[in-house]
């Protein structure tokens, strides 16, 4: 089963001894089967919080508001057991460090058999055959041999391939990859990018790729949401985001990426200032304290989400359609 996903007015707070951290505020996103969605933004902007909320894996100190609808069903309205079932079967999360996803004392093969516990119709031999096929599909040579390996016997790139294979074995309608290449070397990163690209052509669910790396997002995604300090500040087709960015933060972020410049720069561009304290988010625009375009209303009035085209939106007072 694969369906559309829509989060609306989604907010997440973490309760801490120093107050509530408003890690996610009024986020609206949607994703449709067959799409690769990119979530990009800098550290602490709430990317992981957003995708862990979608996967229902937030820590105990998190408080969630708003709705997440999958295939038309409001997940909050399901009872806990059905919610777990639905999310366990439908949503797979591949994390940044695939090592943490595996049990170090079990072989890859045994763990991947366990990943298919929902397939009551299959015997062990059939499950192993599925694994071998899936490992082959993610580009692991000698799949039969590799199934007898322990996680530490695989390279980082191979572990990430196995993690992707593990996720796909559950037949998820939504595959979330949180920084899938961040722990990898550049030649391995290129291979994983190509793997994800090759997979998407056969997979008709939703893929969400979370990354702080603009290059990875540009290589992989159809649509992109740009996050800053817990909010989605801009969203649109990948080409619009990279070639017609309208939000001042998106523009500044793109301008900072050294991969865009081939001539040696004496000083690398930066964004002056720092992230707002998320225990007391600014009352106006979250980006106002650092924004070069800020004017009268920005400090006190929250900016509207301005519709720029069918799919392009930016949350900014200075943007006009």
């Amino acid at each position: 089963m694969s369906g559309s996903l829509a989060a609306s007015d989604l907010s997440v707070r973490y309760e801490t001894p120093h107050g509530s951290v408003h890690a996610l505020r009024h986020v609206d996103i949607e994703a449709h089967p067959g799409e690769v969605i990119g979530i990009v933004g800098e550290s602490g902007c709430g990317k992981s919080t957003l995708v862990t909320a979608l996967a229902n894996l937030l820590p105990a100190n998190a408080r969630v508001d708003g709705s997440i609808r999958y295939n038309g069903i409001d997940l909050a309205k399901l009872d806990a057991r059905r919610q777990r079932l639905l999310r366990g079967d439908e949503i797979a999360l591949v994390s940044q460090d695939p090592m943490t996803a595996f049990n170090p004392v079990l072989t890859i093969g045994d763990q991947l058999v366990d990943f298919q516990h929902h397939r009551k119709d299959l015997g062990r031999a059939q499950k192993r055959a599925r694994i071998a096929a899936m490992l082959g599909r993610v580009g692991i040579a000698d799949a039969e041999l590799r199934m007898d390996c322990y996680p530490h016997e695989l390279s980082g790139g191979m572990r990430q391939r196995v993690a992707i294979a593990a996720a796909l074995l559950t037949d998820p309608g939504l595959l979330i990859a949180d920084e899938p290449t961040t722990a990898l070397d550049v030649t391995m990163e290129a291979q994983i990018i190509h793997l994800l690209r090759a997979l998407r052509s056969e997979y008709n669910g939703i893929i969400i790729v979370v990354s702080h790396n603009l290059g990875v997002i540009a290589e992989l995604c159809d649509r992109v949401y740009v996050m800053y300090a817990g909010e989605v500040v801009e969203g649109g087709e990948v080409d619009a985001i990279f070639h017609d960015a309208r939000h001042p933060y998106t523009q500044a972020l793109l301008a900072c990426d050294p991969a865009r410049f081939h001539e040696r720069l004496d000083r690398l561009p930066t964004i002056p200032g720092s992230l707002p304290n998320l225990t007391q988010p600014p009352s106006g625009c979250v980006y106002a304290p650092r924004c070069a375009c800020a004017f009268a209303p920005c400090g006190s009035v929250a900016p509207p989400l301005v519709k720029l085209s069918a799919s392009h939106r930016a949350r900014c007072h200075a943007v006009t359609p």
Binding site: S155, Q191, D239, D257, R260
Partner: peptide, 25 residues
């Protein structure tokens, strides 16, 4: 040359066609 070619380019209009190098390190 391989390393330089493997770098993802932050421009969806210039997507790389294929990995510059295959195989494990």
């Amino acid at each position: 040359a391989t390393l330089i070619q493997s770098e993802p380019i932050p421009d969806p209009r210039r997507r790389s066609q294929n990995p510059a190098v295959t195989g494990e390190i």
